[in-house]
Every structure is written in C-alpha cells, then in structure tokens.
Amino acid sequence: MPNTLIWIPKRLVELGLVNVAARSPEAFIDYCEQDYAARVEHAAACVRESGAHVVMLTGPSASGKTTTAHKLADCIAAHGRRSAVVSLDNFYKDLKDYPRLPDGSVDYESVDALDISAINRCLLELIRTGRTQIPDFDFCGERRRHGVIPVEVGDGVVVIEGIHALNPRLTALLPEGSAFKIYAGMREEYSRDGQRILPTRDVRLARRMVRDHKFRGHSLEKTFSMWPAVCEGEDKNIKVFKPEADLLLDTSFSYEVCCLAPFVTALRGELAPGTPYAAQLESLCSRFALCMPLPEQSIPRTSMLREFIG
C-alpha cells in the first residue's frame, strides 16, 4: 500500500525579500546551508530509526539527488553505520537493448532501459549478506564494461540513487520494510509583486543549463531541446511514484537564485534572435537578472549547489 504522507505545498517567496537577505551574503548563505544540512540529518535519523539496510532515493532532473545521496550516506556513517552510494546508472543495459519509442528512437527515460533482474538480485544480496557486485557501465560507449564493482557495507546502509529508485518493480522482491524510500525535490518558488516568476522547474532548468554548459560540453540548444522530454519523463516515471516515499526531502536553497544569476545572465545573447530557444533563453535570463547576484567564491566548497556550478 502507498504511504500516506502529505506532500508539503511549495513555498512562494517574494524575490524582493531574497534580495534584501542577499545584502548580508555570509549570514544568508550560512543559514540556508545549515537548513539544508538539518534536513539531510533528519533524513539520516529516519533511516536509522527504520532499521532499513537499503535507501531508495529519487528526484527529478537537477534536484540535487546525487549529491544529497552522498551527504545522506556521510550522515549515516557519522553515526557509526557503514554506508555506500550506488547509482542506478550502473544498471543500464547496452544501448542496443534499450526500449524504443513509437518513432523508433531510443527511450532513455524508460525503466526498462535498466537491468531490473540484476537490480533485484543485488538488493537482495545487500540485505541478506551486506555485500554485492554491481555492473560497471561505460557512459561514453553506452554499454557495459567487462568486470564488476564490489559493494560491501556489512550491516550498514546502501543508498541507491536514480530517477527510477521509487519504481516498485525495483523493490518488489525485497522483504517488507527492508527499504526506506526518499523523494528529493525542490519546494521553493519565487515571485515578484505577488506573481510567480521562477517556478521550481525553471530553477532546475537553470541548474541543468549551467552544469551542462560548464562541465558536459552540451550546447544551449541541446539542453533546451532535451528539456521537454526530460519533464515528460519526470511526470511519467518519477513523480507518479511520490506516494511510495517514506520521506520527502526538500533540496531548495533560498539564496540559490542569487548564486545562479551571474551564470545564467552571462549566457544572454548566446542564441541569436529568432533561432530556436532564443526567446526561452531570453525569458530565463531576464527573470534571473532580477536577482541580486552573489559571487561564486561566496558559495561554500561543500555546498550541494557545487554539483551544478563546480
């Protein structure tokens, strides 16, 4: 049966208040970082109390789930239990075995792109013995490498992170109560004069755009062109399983729109007027231009936001 958690409504924060707080950047950033750390610490406490040996953690694109998974594992370890993080990305099949969309193109978002039987086996081994061996996936070649990656935590906790982590097919064979499920997502949006101007989906797009541009060699056109399919995949494959979650973990930072602002606005004009996505880029840049910019060096090196800005 699905859990009966009530999903916390999103907070609509007036951007003028954020800009006022940004005039005292050190205090503002410190407060937001401590608040996020407290949320992760609370999640770790819930995992310990549950007695689960496996945590299934998901969230939409650019929700910060990967870094949050590692910070959660660190919190668990700090309280004396061994921990490790395993990405579901390692369980992707070879590209030739991916499911196809009606037009014949590869369906990267489908859960059937994963080797579900291998996931079932590895999770059962972790619960029964505290150790397993997971596949080693080559993302450049989009196929499995020869060999495996050993994972061992004894009676500790393994955090499994990925977009399909809450899909019941991945945990269907596990004993009741042996997996603790977390949905990580942003809960803060921003308004001006009472009108919402930066919903969470646009903030996540900005996170992804900055990360793709700085570290993944993706053009702006590629990021924007992929985004509708990413969002459609989230609605179909991730958000539908929110009711499965034991805990809802907020990954918002009130100061982050000010942190992202210099990166986003620096891309203004990169797409020529009239070309695909130029209007979308201009709209995003114009809204982030309303945020008081915070310099990159003011962001702590350990911040979860470093996943996106480096």
Rank of each mutant, 00 (worst) to 15 (best):
P2A: 09
W7I: 12
I8P: 07
P9R: 04
P9V: 03
N19P: 05
A21T: 06
E26A: 15
A27N: 07
D30T: 08
D30I: 02
Y31K: 08
Q34T: 08
Y36T: 01
Y36H: 03
A37F: 03
V40C: 02
H42Y: 07
A43S: 05
A44M: 03
R48F: 07
G51Y: 02
G51Q: 02
A52C: 08
V55E: 00
P60W: 00
A62N: 00
G64F: 00
K65A: 01
T66H: 02
K71I: 01
A73N: 01
I76Y: 01
H79Y: 05
H79M: 12
G80P: 02
A84Q: 02
S87F: 07
S87D: 06
L88Y: 00
D89A: 10
D89V: 09
N90I: 07
F91P: 00
Y92V: 09
Y92N: 12
Y98Q: 03
R100G: 11
R100C: 11
L101M: 14
L101C: 12
P102D: 06
G104R: 06
D107P: 10
E109R: 13
S110W: 03
V111H: 06
V111D: 06
V111I: 15
D115K: 06
I116W: 04
C122P: 06
L124R: 05
L126W: 04
G130A: 09
G130C: 09
R131I: 09
R131V: 13
R131Q: 14
R131S: 15
I134M: 11
I134T: 11
D136T: 12
R143T: 13
R144D: 12
I149Q: 12
I149G: 11
P150A: 14
V151G: 11
V158D: 02
G162L: 09
L166N: 10
R169F: 08
L170Y: 06
S178P: 12
E188Q: 11
Y190Q: 02
S191M: 12
D193G: 15
T200Q: 04
V203C: 01
L205M: 05
A206I: 00
R207M: 02
D212N: 11
S219F: 03
S219T: 14
K222P: 02
K222M: 08
T223F: 01
T223M: 02
T223S: 07
F224L: 09
S225F: 05
W227A: 04
P228E: 08
A229M: 10
V230K: 03
I238G: 01
K242C: 12
P243C: 12
D250F: 08
S254T: 14
V257D: 02
C258F: 06
P262F: 08
F263V: 08
V264W: 00
T265V: 15
R268S: 15
R268F: 14
E270H: 11
A278Q: 10
A278V: 14
A278G: 13
A279F: 05
E282F: 07
E282C: 13
L284D: 06
F288W: 08
C291A: 15
P293L: 08
P295A: 15
E296G: 13
M304D: 03
R306H: 11
I309Y: 05
